[in-house]
């Protein structure tokens, strides 16, 4: 369908023209961009940047020398320590607690709040050592992860796969190893009309994803098995089969999930040259951009 549109447009564009213009853009508001995704047992790290005006050719700069105040459940906890351009907490966040921050920028007070949701346990995970041919012409190791979705609430998930080479011994750490890209092959009707196998970012996406994310709209409260493929990059049984594979099921807050969906989808639409409405990046930062969000996780290890 897209090709058809291009062709039709091309016919007309043959005699049409492109003219550089300088549209009157609306005010952007604050230029402060904050990113922080925190989990239990790991210090909170916040990265703060300035946004770049759209026609500006400068690169991003981290904002330094800011006083970033951290609150826990509404009470002031500490001022974050600036370290290598990031702002780091001394405390380790805990499940169920609500965290918020405040910082004063040139554009005024910037703040946000989030919490750490409960983790969801992986009940079972399997991984096949047999490489299979996927519809797009790519190969992958079929894998699946099963978990019990908590009922009655909206849950948001992300799944990552870490692979650790164990020929010289394996770590007992919960998350260790290198992130291996994965693919999901989902036969779906694309509402955009470009029907084909929907594989991650579409038929052209053959590089895989660092993580897969999804919500529980269609399986709320059920035991759910998620099927996907692990691309033979780091995990490659032809080269070495002495590996430990860790499946990390993250429980995300809505703000984290929305950020992932919107930021990835914006890039996808741009790559496709879609005529759809551009995607606005979701944010929970007051007077700023980015996202400040907690998550939890559960790890299931396999040594196939």
């Amino acid at each position: 369908m897209r090709r058809l549109l291009y062709i039709i447009c091309a016919v007309f564009i043959a005699q049409s023209c492109e003219t550089p213009i300088d549209p009157k853009l609306p005010e952007n508001g604050s230029d402060v961009v904050v990113y922080s995704f925190y989990r239990p047992d790991s210090r909170i790290q916040m990265d703060v940047f300035n946004a770049i005006p759209i026609l500006d050719v400068n690169s991003f700069q981290r904002l330094e020398n800011l006083e970033v105040r951290l609150n826990v459940n509404g009470d002031f906890q500490e001022v974050l320590l600036e370290e290598n351009g990031s702002y780091i907490s001394s405390i380790l966040p805990e499940e169920g607690d609500t965290y918020s921050f405040e910082l004063m920028s040139e554009d005024g007070l910037v703040s946000a709040s989030s919490y750490i949701p409960e983790s969801v346990e992986i009940l079972n995970a399997t991984l096949s050592r047999e490489l299979v041919d996927i519809n797009i012409g790519e190969y992958g190791y079929p894998a699946e992860v099963t978990f019990q979705d908590p009922a009655g609430v909206s849950n948001y998930y992300s799944l990552e796969v870490f692979v650790e080479e164990c020929s010289v011994g394996c770590s007992n750490q919960t998350i260790e190893g290198e992130l291996n890209e994965v693919l999901i092959e989902d036969l779906d009707v694309d509402t955009g009309g470009t029907t084909d196998v929907i594989i991650g970012g579409g038929p052209e996406a053959i590089d895989g994803f660092r993580y897969l994310y999804f919500e529980d709209d269609s399986f709320d409260g059920e035991v759910f098995t998620f099927n996907f493929y692990i691309i033979p990059t780091i995990l490659n049984f032809d080269r070495s089969d002495d590996v430990k594979v860790r499946f990390v099921l993250k429980s995300l807050t809505k703000e984290y999930f929305d950020y992932l969906v919107t930021s990835d989808y914006q890039l996808t639409l741009e790559e496709e040259g879609s005529l759809s409405e551009p995607v606005q990046i979701s944010t929970n930062i007051n007077n700023g951009m980015g996202v400040f969000a907690g998550y939890n996780y559960n790890v299931y290890s396999l040594q196939p």
Partner: peptide
């Protein structure tokens, strides 16, 4: 669009 901002790719590592 009015501005460019960095995209955070924040996995567990």
């Amino acid at each position: 669009p009015t501005a460019s901002i960095p995209k955070a790719t924040w996995d567990s590592s």
